[in-house]
Design a protein around this nucleic acid. Structure first.
Lengths: 211, 211
DNA sequence: GTCTATAAAGAGATAGAC
DNA sequence: GTCTATCTCTTTATAGAC
């Protein structure tokens, strides 16, 4: 928050954030395990030991990146509706808001979230991230369940299956979305919500229902 | 096809398929790069060089596993509808059939498909697999496009976005589905098709529309 | 079909100078 | 904040015996 690499004057001289950005990009390109410190050093135009000046270990780089992604996603579920009359809003409205918010976090934090979604839990750092991710998933499932109880969502599909499939759709965005493409984040969120809530089938033209 | 490991009498004596199964499981557990030949040897109760008797390289193990997954998926799009009156069926019906078929391939070939979906394209083997996967994606997009032209699917969302999101939902199944769970493959395919085509929103109870 | 032994390269990480 | 040099361990893969 205090001092960005790109805002600095003077010679290269990386700070932690500057290195982090390059590292996350490389991790996403080759995979975390396949990316060696030597490769990072090469990309940065630094020696390996220069990297160890900024981070205690390769694991710590991953830790900081995953924390950024998780913080963004957690913020989405923790603030149900920024409007003000938050508590009064329906679970369905909050769910829709969370789906849109998640799409925006994915797009805004694309590299970090991409990395997060590929974590398998091999190291302590990865397991710690998975614990937070599962807590997030549980909150989504609870929200779906509440929306089903309200009667606004179909209740013939298990809430946890709904939550997983809906977020499976959202998370898959990291596989192909690239900033600057034809599809903006708002439009993409609209599409996701449209498919998830109303489906792909063209409504059987029931008269003159407005949009 | 000819001789399965589990059907053999006598002492361990692995064949290629037997090793392949263990290897794919390990690759999915730790990631391909993080899984060393030494770890595979330990799991198999063999020495490292015994593995090299069955495969020319670590890459070749991956190659065979990815081919199995891709062959399964390709079979789904290549045989539109097994009914017989294939050519006459609508694109929408064929699309629904493909969605269900893909879910079944995912479930039946869970380990191999899981591995395929994690491939990033770092090696020649991985790039070869990605080429086949992209060809598959294009056929799905074409099918969606055709279904939109028929007027059966909403046309306000780009066909390639629809294809990616729908398969994002389907592919995410590998992240959580475990055989023997409460959800069978048929039920799961029903759920996927229900969400994708009709959405989560409970229809506004328009009288007494039958199921 | 499996073994031991080994080669050759690359990994993560540290020491200490500038 | 970065460097060179180095340590130690692990990696993929091969040679050759049983």
């Amino acid at each position: 928050m205090s001092e960005m690499q790109s805002t600095r004057r003077g010679r290269p001289g990386y700070d932690q954030q500057g290195i982090l950005g390059v590292a996350v990009a490389a991790f996403n390109e080759y995979g975390y395990d396949a990316t060696s410190i030597g490769m990072l050093a090469e990309r940065l135009g630094l020696s390996k030991s220069a990297i160890y000046h900024h981070f205690g270990s390769k694991d710590e780089i991953l830790d900081l990146a995953l924390d950024a992604a998780l913080s963004g996603l957690e913020a989405v579920v923790e603030d149900p509706l920024p409007g003000g009359t938050a508590e009064a809003s329906s679970a369905t409205a909050r769910l829709e808001h969370v789906l849109r918010g998640a799409v925006h976090v994915l797009v805004d934090q694309l590299p970090a979230v991409t990395l997060l979604l590929r974590v398998r839990g091999n190291t302590e750092v990865e397991r710690k991230a998975l614990v937070r991710r599962r807590a997030f998933d549980r909150r989504i499932t609870a929200l779906v369940s509440e929306a089903q109880s309200e009667g606004a969502l179909r209740a013939d599909i298990d809430a946890s299956v709904v939550a997983r499939l809906a977020f499976g759709m959202i998370n898959s965005i990291v596989e192909w979305y690239r900033p600057g493409g034809r599809e903006g984040a708002d439009r993409l969120a609209d599409d996701v919500v449209a498919i998830a809530l109303d489906g792909l089938r063209k409504p059987a033209d029931a008269g003159t229902a407005a949009v």
